[in-house]
């Protein structure tokens, strides 16, 4: 456990918790402006969270501990990923947990906890959301695993920090076929996993078409605040991983204050730019019919598979 890792383990979660609602606010604002609306402002998600935190806690009748614990598990898993994965520093506070498989499993665990909570409510909407989310997850997780695995093959390590460092050492890798294929696959997967268009519409009010929102329909007050915060954090984490796996420049490799400051700035800029691009792209796409989504995901899985194949053949 290096000093750099410890600093990263403190700075990263603080940055992600504080910044992810702002990222969501920024994306909503970009979309509003592009659609000719005024928008609620970048800080609106934080105001919403403050409002929700002040409301009383509600337990829907007939739900169990699974329902109450799910928001905590969701936030906790994302928090652990924020601590260990290389966002600001290449070293990790908990090196064995910065493994590719561990990070994917942690993120999946959060989604599973929420799906179980959806089923626990016993309502048609909760079950419907859980079923849709798991259908998408069952197709997304393989792609995620395969795509990052493709990147790890050349490095000879499944440690995310090691993958990022090796790209820093050899920048030409970014434009290799393996990287490009994996990047496209990952982008598609991130869109699906974070419930963005064209897979899910984060701003819909129609219960019957929702995926993520249907699952969390019964949450209110502080519980809902946690779920909202966790969704925003997951979005930041995914975008941060995408940025650092393919464009790691700026990330702090030494524990000097200047390097850390550059690392923080680089992450904010990279994630911000990716978020703005995602939001701008969403203006021009409509939501796919539910059973077209698997076709999209199958496509991304194929790309990831090609990336792995390429990483073995084109060494």
């Amino acid at each position: 456990m290096s000093a750099l890792g410890v600093v990263g383990g403190v700075v990263q979660p603080v940055l992600i918790v504080a910044g992810s609602p702002l990222l969501v606010g920024l994306m909503r604002q970009v979309r509003a402006r592009l659609e000719g609306r005024a928008g609620a402002g970048v800080a609106q998600p934080w105001r919403d969270l403050r409002k929700l935190m002040r409301k009383e806690q509600i337990t829907p009748r007939g739900t169990s501990e699974v329902f109450r614990l799910a928001p905590l598990v969701l936030v906790a898993t994302t928090l652990v990923v924020a601590v260990v994965a290389p966002f600001v520093t290449t070293d990790s506070a908990l090196d064995p947990a910065a493994d590719l498989f561990a990070v994917v499993a942690l993120l999946a665990l959060g989604a599973v906890a929420l799906a179980l909570a959806g089923l626990d409510t016993g309502t048609a909407f909760g079950g419907m959301g859980a079923s849709r989310e798991m259908t998408i997850l069952a197709l997304v997780e393989p792609t995620l695993l395969v795509a990052i695995f493709a990147l790890s093959v050349r490095v000879g390590s499944t440690n995310l920090g090691a993958i990022v460092s090796s790209t820093l050492d050899d920048p030409a890798r970014v434009i290799s076929p393996v990287s490009l294929l994996a990047a496209v696959a990952l982008i598609l997967v991130i869109i699906a996993e974070t419930g963005r268009l064209p897979v899910d519409n984060p701003s819909t009010h129609l219960e019957l078409t929702m995926v993520h929102e249907a699952m969390v329909l019964e949450y209110a007050g502080p519980d809902l605040a946690l779920v909202e915060l966790a969704s925003a954090m997951r979005l930041s984490v995914f975008l941060g991983l995408l940025a650092n796996l393919f464009l790691p420049w700026g990330i702090a490799a030494t524990a000097t204050p200047v390097a850390l400051l550059v690392g923080i700035l680089a992450l904010v800029v990279k994630v911000g730019v990716l978020g703005v691009l995602l939001a701008a792209g969403e203006v021009f796409v409509a939501k796919l019919r539910l059973f077209r989504v698997p076709e999209l995901l199958a496509g991304s899985f194929l790309l990831a598979l090609l990336a792995v194949a390429a990483s073995f053949f084109l060494v």
């Binding site: 009383e56 806690q57 337990t59 829907p60 007939g62 936030v75 928090l79 260990v84 019964e218």
Partner: peptide, 30 residues
């Protein structure tokens, strides 16, 4: 990993206890 997750859970639960309203949990209809 499990230890890390448990620590994170405790931290989040603690923060929620501090930040959220102190009013008791109430039951409501689905």
């Amino acid at each position: 990993l499990t230890l890390g997750l448990v620590v994170a859970l405790v931290v989040v639960a603690g923060v929620v206890r501090l930040a959220a309203t102190r009013r008791a949990r109430r039951e409501a209809r689905l």
